[in-house]
Design a protein around this nucleic acid. Sequence first.
DNA 1: ACGACCATTGCACATGCTGCAACGCACCTC
DNA 2: GAGGTGCGTTGCAGCATGTGCAATGGTCGT
Lengths: 254, 254
Amino acid sequence: MSQTVDRALTILPLLAEGPAGLEEVATRLGVHKSTALRLLRTLCEHGLVYRQPDQRYRLGARLFALAQQAMESLDVRDVAHPHLARLNAETGHTVHLAVYEEGEVIYIDKVDSRYPVRMYSRIGRPVAITVAAVAKLLLADLPEAERREVARRLDYPRYTPRSTPDAQAFLAELAKVRAQGWATDLGGHEESINCVAAPIRGPDGRVAAAMSLSAPNVVVGADGLLALLPQIRRTAEAISAEYSGTAPGGPTGS
Amino acid sequence: MSQTVDRALTILPLLAEGPAGLEEVATRLGVHKSTALRLLRTLCEHGLVYRQPDQRYRLGARLFALAQQAMESLDVRDVAHPHLARLNAETGHTVHLAVYEEGEVIYIDKVDSRYPVRMYSRIGRPVAITVAAVAKLLLADLPEAERREVARRLDYPRYTPRSTPDAQAFLAELAKVRAQGWATDLGGHEESINCVAAPIRGPDGRVAAAMSLSAPNVVVGADGLLALLPQIRRTAEAISAEYSGTAPGGPTGS
DNA sequence: ACGACCATTGCACATGCTGCAACGCACCTC
DNA sequence: GAGGTGCGTTGCAGCATGTGCAATGGTCGT
């Protein structure tokens, strides 16, 4: 709606791809160099963009600080964390917490496996939305219309042979997940990694977040992971109860 | 420089404090409601701001994703992480990695202690700049003029009796740190927590980042932590060597 | 059902943004 | 070391764009 701001904000994802010089920014924005310069200067003053010694621009430190503050103000996170840590302590596996917003699913907390395996997931990172167990739970709870709309717009990358192939399959999966109240990802993202997830509900009964337990096949097979389902659901329900009870003034949820 | 963008960006830190309605935003910005509305809409379209069901605004998910991408593109981080993880595995204590930028020091990586103690730090969060060991190293390496300027502008909160009291003491401490090539924080931020830090240098010899080992007194005393100094310095030097060697096209440093 | 409050819309005005062209600067070539 | 090329920077005239006002619409509380 506001051309100037729109242009300025378009610079951010552009710089997220890597540092860029003034001319490159101007070209990719489709504006004159002087215009781009003024926008970049403004972004710099606010610390969202940093000008490197070599005069190229990249995203700046204040962005981290802002994102951090925003994340901390998500109250689901505070409520959930101790429970997630306990589940991790009991099972030893990686625990994730994710929320949905505007077509994206994002990890907002993670407790690492005590086994020496690394998952490439990271707090703040968008989730592989078509296959991740947490994503299925979050999308399954959307109103019918929005769910279909989102499913239609998505890409369906074939990470592995077991990845969800298309919108139709995805909607069917969501229906199943919705009915059973939990979700899995059995090698749909990385061949050898399985996840089991359960929903966390807010005061209004809607799914506010989702949590999952992930482990590679070498540590525990799909069966072994599924055996932990009751424990996962208990944890999720405990979080739901606490979160629903203590819900303060405004729902920060979703 | 650009009024409109400037106003729009001012909204972000404002919302970081917590969700706010249109009127509140307009008032605090000092503009008319209709103006604030258009700015907020633009921010929403870019996903930096999210409109809650209750029609209040808060920071949005794309902000996390952006910050995440930016952080991942800091190549110091990639180089350092395995070393940090190893140091953590060997010592069991919390390891931090931080960088300096525009008057702020920010944690960009962390490996948690294996002991059940929690530290208030978090990736992306600004560091207590006047007391943290990593901050001292990063500031100590600034050019004289900038160092004095930054020291002058800072606040000196008295977290504990051992916190750096004022600019003069801080500059003296920085001189010492600069000379000895490592830094400590002995109960300057939290009474019972000590840190020891070492610098990571880039290809140009300047301090590009700093790493620290932290532990509460109940786990290991200041002496015990200081005994690990050689190990910390070796780790930092290993990272420096690798980082200096592999420096690609443009320095993403600082 | 009424009133208060807040978000939203359309519009006239002029502010402040835009693009142009000229300048400065650093690096590179010959 | 002189000339050239590429990039960032500046000042300015014109007008597109953002601005504030006042009126409308929607929602909640009483």
